[in-house]
Simulated scan of single mutants.
Amino acid sequence: MFVYYVQPQDTLYLIARRFNTTLEKILALNDLPDPDNIKVGMKLYLDLETEEPEVENDPYTTRIVDGLLYILTTEKARFLRREPILFTLTKLNITSAPVTLNYRSSQRFDFVVLKDNQEIWRWSEDQFFAQVMERISIRPGEAQIFSALWDQRDNSGQLVAPGSYIVRGYNLAEELRRRFIPTTIRIRLAPAPLPPPITCPSDNLLNNPGLENWLDLNTPSGWQGTNLNRTRFSKSGSFAAELGTSPNQRAALTQMVSGLPRRLFRLEFWAREIPQTPPRANFTLGAEVFFYDTKGNFISRADPVFNQAAIPEQYTSYTLTTGLSPAGTVRAEVRFIFSPATGNNSTVGIDDVDFRCLT
């Protein structure tokens, strides 16, 4: 247990970090109901029995020298290359009497960084200090705090390499000039930046979604299919696809497009029954979305599946929203399947198909 007197600019949070304790412990030891109600010069009791940091990767080193408790801290133990590093050296009088220190100049402290026991950086390098003898008295519970920022460059201005480094904090009083307190930090390369997230295209993913362009009477441009014809029974434009033109045979209309993993997709289309004479409708129309990987291997079929047995004789809009596409998805396939049953002589028109990535 030590006594500490609040310094200018102190907060209980900063005091807790500086002395490797917690705000809760300080409040309990000092019977303080309000953590914001502290004043310069206020006496606080601190429990400094723990020498290991309570916060992970928050290096904290202590040493007692001639009645002074020295504390050397950095904000964390590991730093990215080029990241500025703040060193803080605190010296606290833990005795019951003043401690007197004599200095040759106005310089009170220094920080040194070593690599493989060789000095590579010194805070005081190329700095000038008044050459005046001074005597400083530190009262019981009083602390002096010194900080310096290192930009990870050596004394010649070169950026240091990744690796482990020793940091030493010195009090330059005549009585303690050769005494220091060390800690270790590690500098590592920054991880490679993550690629920017792939966003969903805002446009319809399908080619020739309105089924206006045909290579011949049976083949719409951009699509593949069986048992279908071009028809003028369209929702918009001049043409649509008519499925089931050969009686009692399944028909298909499909298109493969680019896909993305872990995304939702929405399929919207217009469909109608095209009755024949005499009308005998007995069929189902299915709409499905399939997902494939980079090698073209089938991964899964999206849920839900559209399956409609009764299609009106006027164009009606239908919508299917998939669940999340599986990991590894790079391609998606839109499929329309026309399945006639016994006695059917109707066909189905498909037009204005819209397939989009939602998120």
Results as ranks from 00 to 15, higher is better:
R186A: 06
L194E: 08
T219P: 03
N282M: 13
V160G: 01
Y103N: 05
V348M: 05
A28N: 14
I64S: 09
P340I: 07
R122V: 08
L89H: 00
I145K: 06
L194D: 08
L194H: 06
T322H: 02
R178C: 09
S156P: 07
C200H: 08
N229C: 10
T73K: 04
E313P: 07
R18G: 01
R179I: 07
L217Y: 11
R177Y: 15
W121L: 03
I181F: 07
L285N: 00
R82M: 15
L172N: 06
D58M: 13
E51D: 14
R122G: 07
R230N: 05
I38M: 11
V3Q: 11
V6G: 00
S234K: 01
P162D: 07
Y318N: 04
V40I: 15
S221C: 13
L217I: 14
S258E: 15
Q224K: 12
Y60V: 07
S96E: 13
T90N: 12
T316V: 08
F355L: 10
I26S: 02
N204C: 07
S234Q: 02
P191A: 10
S124L: 03
L228T: 05
F265H: 06
P59M: 08
L189T: 11
R108N: 06
P33Q: 11
G296D: 06
T284L: 09
E125P: 03
L243A: 08
G259N: 02
G244M: 01
F355G: 00
I350G: 00
D47P: 03
G225S: 09
L194S: 09
A148N: 05
A148M: 04
L228W: 03
G210H: 06
I181Y: 05
A241D: 01
R178H: 15
K91I: 15
P182K: 09
L211E: 01
P247F: 10
G259H: 01
R82Q: 15
I138G: 03
L320T: 04
E313N: 14
L23I: 12
A143D: 05
T277H: 06
N57M: 11
Q144F: 12
P33W: 09
Q9T: 14
L86M: 13
F128Y: 15
S258M: 15
S339H: 09
L72E: 00
R122N: 14
I138W: 05
T62L: 04
N155T: 15
Q158L: 14
P59N: 10
S325P: 03
Q276K: 13
G222V: 04
E242N: 12
L215Q: 13
E333I: 03
P35C: 12
D351G: 06
I85H: 01
V305T: 13
A309Q: 12
W123M: 10
W150T: 00
T21Y: 10
S325I: 02
P195D: 13
I136F: 09
D116C: 13
I311M: 12
R179F: 09
E142K: 10
A251G: 11
I120F: 02
F2K: 09
R301C: 08
F355P: 00
